[in-house]
Design a protein around this nucleic acid. Structure first.
Length: 427
RNA sequence: GGAGAGAUGGCCGAGUAGGUCGAAGGCGGUCGCCUGCUAAGCGAUUAUACGGGCUAAAACUCGUAUCGCGGGUUCGAAUCCCGCUCUCUCCGCCA
């Protein structure tokens, strides 16, 4: 039975030290020794059982010949009956080993790209570049949730009533603003950056969640539809990356670039007490996502481009931001390299993440089995990338805070006015 | 939700009273040949994964597995039995 491995077994086997060191840089002591032992045992058993199967095949053929010739083969059949029994047992053992190995692999994070700086936590993420000037307020700027409430364009209170904490309503110009931001981003990425828009399902099944790495490790971060195997997507990355699961793409078509709007749902387990007010950390939020599939040799350059595409949104909206590169200790589980875009939020007096752009190398492609065929050669795994372009709720929060005026109104950024029916000011 | 039909290689499509079928044939693809009956002809070749051997690595070679998925029967299963999934058609329902 063919098992598709989550890591290249041969690679891990022969570059054991290197893999071990790469993973150690992430700060997780990964037990690869265990893997090596299991792998060795598996290969020994596999070899043995394949020898047995070979004998069975050869003898069975012989039995067929004898029988058609009308001769007796009872002795051989008896022997084979025994052999088959043993084969079955060893097959069972191998299957158990496969499961153990696969389980071990599922919990091994991606290896960081060599260019990723070493560090232990978010505090060690180097700032790569900054853009924009922080506005000097002649008054004391208010946090976006206060602005939203006083302008009556965001209703957190009733969101809590209707659904629960961390849910909210947008209303009037607020709802329109949210929609404007979505459309602005989609138009920018499709019109100027060459992405093909897709509108995905907001629920995805277990295979898809495993394909992009949300499962099995992060099940508690997601909402699951009771009685089904469907999960509410935590990001459009899931359905869009899985678009091509179990497919072999035409090499000529790469890179394939998609952008997608979706609502995103996150259980935010373990986030109790953090960002309890406002739009920063909701159970449901909107996001425009950028997703790329490319050749392995292009993924580094594609990550730079994708990041720039996301940055362009902030630039056109006139929102100050900085770009940090996540250090080894702060990177997500599946990522090989990640840039975070952090927007300036006056009420926090700090930069907050508004986009995360990652190169996953072949990590997701291997799990999701997405390949391409280079001209005249075998299928290879593609590299996948994605990034927010951008998180809409946080963008709205940033607009409200950065564009607020002393009289309590909010100026609409010029780039959004065409999407707001020409509206220049909210309030 | 109810009833029926079907799932075979890149595609189309054979193959079921179990045996030498990884699987006929066609198309497509690749390589070579031919080139005045020309929007052609001829020949060859054309799956993937894993393991062993040989390698610097390949190529190569041997083996195993794979005919929707998972089990079962059997010395032996694409072919028989059971379960599941998906697709198609008809009915119902609905945005």
């Amino acid at each position: 039975m063919g098992v598709r491995w989550l890591l290249d077994l041969k690679f891990v086997r022969s570059n054991y030290k290197m893999v071990q060191e790469a993973l150690a840089r992430r700060g997780e002591a990964v037990a690869l020794e265990q893997f090596l032992v299991l792998d060795k045992e598996r290969r020994e058993k596999l070899y043995r059982v394949e020898q047995m199967k070979n004998r069975r095949n050869v003898v069975s053929e012989e039995i067929g010949r004898l029988k058609t010739a009308g001769r007796d083969a009872a002795e051989m059949m008896a022997e084979m009956r025994l052999l088959s029994q043993q084969v079955k047992e060893i097959d069972e053992e191998i299957r158990a080993l496969d499961g153990q190995i696969q389980e071990a692999l599922l919990n091994i994070p991606n290896m960081p790209d060599e260019s990723v700086p070493y560090g232990r936590s978010a505090a060690d993420n180097p700032v790569v570049r900054k853009w924009g000037e922080k506005r000097q307020f002649s008054f004391s700027p208010k946090p976006h949730w206060e602005i939203g409430e006083s302008l009556d364009i965001i209703d957190f209170e009733r969101g809590g009533k209707v659904t629960g904490t961390r849910f909210s309503f947008y209303k009037g110009a607020g709802a329109r603003l949210e929609r404007a931001v979505i459309n602005f981003m989609l138009d920018l990425h499709t019109g100027r950056h060459g992405y093909v828009e897709v509108f995905p399902p907001f629920l995805a099944n277990r295979e898809s969640m495993t394909g992009t790495g949300q499962l099995p490790k992060f099940a508690e971060d997601m909402f699951r539809v009771e009685g089904t195997d469907y999960y509410l997507i935590p990001t459009a990355e899931v359905p869009v990356t899985n678009l091509y699961r179990n497919e072999i793409l035409d090499g000529e078509k790469l890179p394939i670039c998609h952008c997608a709007y979706s609502a995103c749902f996150r259980a935010e387990a373990g986030a109790a007490g953090r960002d309890t007010r406002g739009l920063i950390r909701q159970h449901q939020f909107n996001k425009v996502e950028l997703v790329k599939f490319c050749r392995p040799e292009d993924s580094c350059a594609e990550l730079e481009k994708l990041t720039r595409d996301a940055e362009r949104v902030l630039q056109l909206l006139g929102l100050p931001y900085r770009v940090v590169v996540l250090c080894t200790g702060d990177m997500g589980f599946s990522a090989a390299k990640t840039y975070d875009l952090e927007v300036w939020l006056p009420s926090y007096g700090d930069f907050r993440e508004i986009s995360s752009c990652s190169n996953f190398a072949d990590y997701q492609a291997r799990r999701a089995n997405i390949r391409y065929r280079p001209p005249g050669s075998k299928a290879r795994y593609v590299h996948t990338l994605n990034g927010s372009g951008l998180a809409v709720g946080r963008t709205v929060a940033a607009i409200l805070e950065n564009y607020q005026e002393a009289d309590g109104t909010v100026t609409v950024p010029e780039a959004l006015r065409p999407y707001m029916g020409g509206l220049e000011k909210i309030g």
